[in-house]
Design a protein around this nucleic acid. Structure first.
Lengths: 175, 175
DNA sequence: AATGAAATCGACCAGCA
DNA sequence: TGCTGGTCGATTTCATT
């Protein structure tokens, strides 16, 4: 389960602007970013390091196009489990461990888990659903086929409501 | 809608291994990767460039921890729309445009869209759902609260079944 | 597709506001 | 604490094979 970081660091507007930049594209000169933000290269570097150390930036990664690997079929599977025990964590891990499963959410309500999967062929999809059902504790599943995706490029920082932005900037200042 | 690339490039095992590396962590020396793959730095660089040009690598980005921005509440919302027209695309865009919405899937079945959202407070969540319902064409929604996430770090390349790996490596060789 | 050399960029340091 | 400017090592680029 994601259980990242304890300390909520307070960020200023420059940090937010920087995050928006690098969350969209890190494959540029530091100088380009520096110009954009009216900062020196060193200052950008300094802030980036801090953000990494604080865990705000969890990592720098390459984004791979699933279609380029032939993963043309996407499905969303609702998973219902037998509710007796505290096995939720295990079942979540088991779901995620299945190859093809990209993301697993543990949810409140009638549905216990939502899994997003990508595969190449209908056979693989069939097989994957079989493997989900075979997990110990899984009672029932219901899958939706994904016809299209609208993606935000995962831009967390550029996707805040104005209230949310303010709340981020209102650090408690206790550092 | 994601409609990325036309040409399905054929990749070899080195490309796949390289993708797995950089998809997990790009914040390292090229030499580290080169050592890992028994290649020269230049060769690594050459292949990375090719992968970027081919669109296999869509970009290099910083991954920001939503929790660090106070986005502690995640919801998955099923959206049902009025089915008369071909407005699906518009509705998808409208959903994604709402701040707080991170990802939108267009699905087959009883549910037409699935939206994943992140916000800081219950008020923001309430407000977001109101804004979803207010979109023209949206009929009904049903939301699940997310208690936990199991994430694959979005590692597309390291998440292939053995069949899928083989299918990727069986390029048609037409380049 | 891969190499090595030349130009460029980023990481780090000491010092400063 | 956050930033500056400069240095050195690393990376990108390009001509060459």
């Amino acid at each position: 389960m994601s259980d990242s970081r304890r300390t909520a660091p307070d960020l200023d507007e420059t940090d937010l602007a920087l995050l928006e930049q690098v969350e969209a594209d890190f494959d540029v000169n530091l100088e380009t970013i520096a110009d954009e933000l009216d900062l020196s290269k060193s200052a950008v570097h300094y802030r980036l390091n801090k953000l990494k150390e604080e865990g705000v930036i969890q990592g720098i990664t390459a984004d791979v196009d699933p279609l380029a690997l032939g993963l043309e079929l996407t499905a969303i599977t609702d998973v219902m489990v037998a509710h007796e025990r505290g096995y939720s964590e295990d079942i979540g891990e088991n779901l995620l461990a299945l190859s093809g499963v990209e993301q697993v959410y543990y949810t409140m309500g009638d549905v216990d888990f939502v899994a997003v999967s990508r595969v190449q062929t209908r056979d693989q999809l069939n097989d994957l659903i079989d493997r989900i059902v075979a997990i110990d504790g899984v009672n029932e599943t219901s899958s939706k086929f994904v016809l299209g995706e609208f993606e935000n490029d995962r831009a967390v920082s550029s996707n805040l409501t104005s209230e949310a932005r303010e709340a981020v900037l209102d650090g408690d200042g206790s550092s």
